[in-house]
């Protein structure tokens, strides 16, 4: 046994490591609060520009060549039309598709392919859906630049999100509930309709609201299928031409006059307010659902 090892004590690197730890922690914290700061800056920028133009008349006026008279009535109604129709089309189809994948589908290649396909569709850029809508609904079916063409395009766009969200909600329903229902002699469809769907209702609604709020903000598909940017009437039916809130914002923001930028900012405030209300409802439903299932 050698006792002649060098007697120099091992250099402690603890101080250096602790310093590195503090720097790293500060970096991580800064990164997180960058995101929060950006949100604040963004809201500040929009409110600074837009709050002065926001009043009741703004909501009640049609667009105008004169910035001080311009309003968002046509855009609000257009958005309402498109989103209502999108909901009517996409929600039943999306929920049914999710029911098939979660409740009926056996593990086989076809169903795995459908599932993978939905995941891939969720990542397709919205402007590609717009091209599909342009060729299929506007040209092939001859709907023209109408509300229904916009709603159908938007429905295809949000279907993957609706399906995935509904699947998650259905998966959260405990299987004991289904088994109890089968045990009482209910068929699969009766189980789905009377047990699974009511139990998953909150989760499904949350997913639907979040998908629809994404659709409200989508601009590119509606511009590409040819929604107009200067509309001085309210659509009366699904075949009418229309404009929508984000399109109106895009149009005003790309004009050179400063006064129109303020109008755009005011319209953004309305859009954000609508989204905020929808998201709050979704969060409320999610919280309530959590309490019920736990």
């Amino acid at each position: 046994m050698s006792t002649k090892t060098p007697t120099r004590p091992p250099q402690s690197n603890l101080a250096r490591r602790k310093r590195a730890e503090r720097v790293f922690y500060a970096l991580c914290l800064a990164a997180t609060f960058t995101a929060v700061l950006l949100l604040v800056l963004l809201l500040y920028g929009v409110i600074r520009d837009g709050i002065g133009r926001l009043n009741w008349e703004f909501l009640q006026s049609f667009p105008s060549r004169f910035a001080h008279r311009a309003g968002i009535k046509a855009a609000l109604y257009g958005t309402l039309w498109v989103i209502s129709l999108t909901g009517l089309i996409a929600v039943p189809i999306g929920v049914a598709a999710a029911i098939y994948l979660e409740e009926y589908a056996q593990k086989n290649r076809l169903n795995a392919f459908i599932q993978m396909n939905i995941a891939n569709l969720a990542g397709v850029p919205s402007v590609v859906y717009a091209l599909l809508g342009l060729a299929l609904f506007v040209r092939f079916f001859g709907f023209g630049r109408s509300v229904i063409a916009g709603a159908l395009t938007m429905s295809l766009l949000i279907l993957p999100t609706v399906i995935i969200a509904t699947q998650e909600a259905l998966r959260a329903v405990p299987s004991s509930l289904r088994e109890a229902s089968f045990g009482l002699g209910a068929t699969r469809w009766q189980t789905i309709r009377l047990q699974v769907l009511p139990a998953a209702f909150g989760g499904i609604m949350t997913g639907i609201i979040l998908s629809l709020s994404r659709a409200i903000g989508e601009t590119a598909p509606l511009i590409t299928i040819g929604a107009l940017t200067f509309v001085t009437f309210v659509p009366r039916g699904p075949m009418d031409s229309f404009t929508a809130l984000p399109i109106q914002i895009f149009n005003w923001a790309s004009r050179p006059q400063q006064a129109f930028h303020e109008v755009a900012a005011a319209a953004i405030l309305v859009l954000l307010a609508v989204l905020l209300v929808m998201n709050s409802i979704a969060i409320f439903l999610r919280q309530r659902q959590r309490r019920r299932l736990s």
Partner: peptide, 21 residues
Amino acid sequence: PMLEILAGIPTVVYGYFGVFF
């Protein structure tokens, strides 16, 4: 939730923020 709000802001709003801020 703040990150979720940031994720939910429409892209046209980001466009506005880019040009004017």
